[in-house]
Write a protein that binds this DNA or RNA. Structure first.
Ligand SMILES: [Mn+2]
Ligand SMILES: [Mn+2]
Ligand SMILES: [Mn+2]
Ligand SMILES: [Mn+2]
Lengths: 219, 219
DNA sequence: AAATATTTTTAGTCTTATCTAAATTTTATT
DNA sequence: AATAAAATTTAGATAAGACTAAAAATATTT
């Protein structure tokens, strides 16, 4: 039996360790979980006893295969619920995260598999993040960040790195959504801002925007 | 802030006290919650301090207006999720209760109101129980229990009292569902069994079945 | 290589929700 | 009305998950 709190720790470790690949430090987890390092130490011991993480004192943790499986399953649930909220319940993409944070802990294989079928097996959540299938396999797409895009080329917007309400609302107000076509017009070396053409307008986006928007080549 | 456990206790008190009307005893709550009377005493004290119940030592509890409001809201969520599971995710009516038991605790006004709209404002859950609206009003229908039905009359099946898997599966196997038309053919005084006509068959149901099936007059 | 700074762990508390055992109150029976 | 039985509450423990303060280990500077 795994608790809600353990699930959240495992998910945090998965994300902080670049999808379960790298070692993660105590302080990093504490910051991500908005708790204290001492609480993290306690929890790490428990996760280690339950074989969700490999742990040597003072040396940080990595997820075991079991831990990765748990993490991927929670992410699967989180993202499927996000799709449900946007597609069926008219939530906007900046409203879904908090509710999904709770829904992801509902434990029912049948529920999540039927939900996936009901949503017609979506491959990406409302922020463009891939949804793992029942076996934990991700559907990867070739994407680059806007700040690395090339002048004159046409791209399609396929994801965001920052999922904060303020960034998503910024995109809304500038008519940028997943699927929007973007042509790179000019890259300003002075401040790394980028001028782009959308449907019928041209706008300049700052470096911080350009670093948080993912694009896919259009052929 | 109300915890998941507090919500479950309040719901239990609501049901045991005939929808929040009667006094409920400690032992009854303990049995319903599958816990010990001493734990119930502790929780009652907390609920009383938070003004969800009126409580005098050794005299049992009743829900306050606040307590009733909480209870009705959880029931609203529970039943809407049950409808969702049956209508959209192909759960059968004997599979929904356990999952709804968890989903009912997700805290988001928007989520539940949008879900209600998505389901087109259902008035009853898959077991025929009424779903309160946002303000807590129930939609009541005139229903009687099969054991009190009159010979020769045609009724429509509108609900069940027992929602156990075994009873619901019994009804399934006898082709009795919500909406099924039932004509009373004979009431056997010896064992209180009842012979009924369904679509094209006639069956005899025992007293315990007859006491758990709700009917509505058809004119 | 010491000294200092940072990170991590341990020790000791707190709260919530549970339990068992014992004490108390209420109810039922003689 | 006294006694026995049943219901309820209290007392004292436990486990999970958090915290603060202090100790220990590791990393960084001098
Ligand atoms: Mn979560
Ligand atoms: Mn997302
Ligand atoms: Mn519940
Ligand atoms: Mn129901």
């Amino acid at each position: 039996m795994i608790t809600l709190t353990e699930e959240n720790y495992i998910k945090a470790i998965y994300h902080l360790g670049n999808n379960g690949e790298n070692i993660v430090n105590t302080n990093a987890i504490a910051e991500e979980m908005r708790t204290k390092a001492s609480s993290v130490s306690d929890m790490i011991k428990k996760l280690s006893e339950k074989n969700y993480v490999d742990y040597k004192k003072y040396q940080g943790v990595t997820l075991t295969a079991d831990g990765k499986f748990v993490a991927i399953n929670i992410i699967r649930k989180h993202r499927l619920w996000e799709v449900f909220l946007v597609e069926k319940l008219n939530f906007s993409w900046d409203e879904v995260h908090e509710v999904a944070e709770h829904l992801e802990h509902i434990k029912s294989e049948k529920l999540i598999n039927q939900l996936e079928a009901f949503l017609e097996f979506p491959k990406h959540d409302p922020h463009g993040d891939p949804i793992p299938d029942k076996e934990g396999n991700f559907h990867h797409i070739e994407k680059i960040v806007l700040s690395k895009a090339e002048i004159g080329t046409v791209y399609k917007c396929v994801g965001v790195d920052d999922t904060s309400t303020s960034f998503l609302k910024y995109l809304d107000s500038n008519k940028i959504a997943l699927g929007t076509l973007i042509t790179i017009i000019h890259k300003e070396p002075y401040d790394n801002s980028i001028k782009i053409r959308l449907d019928d307008t041209e706008i300049v986006v700052s470096q911080s925007v350009a670093k948080n928007l993912y694009l896919e080549m259009v052929n």
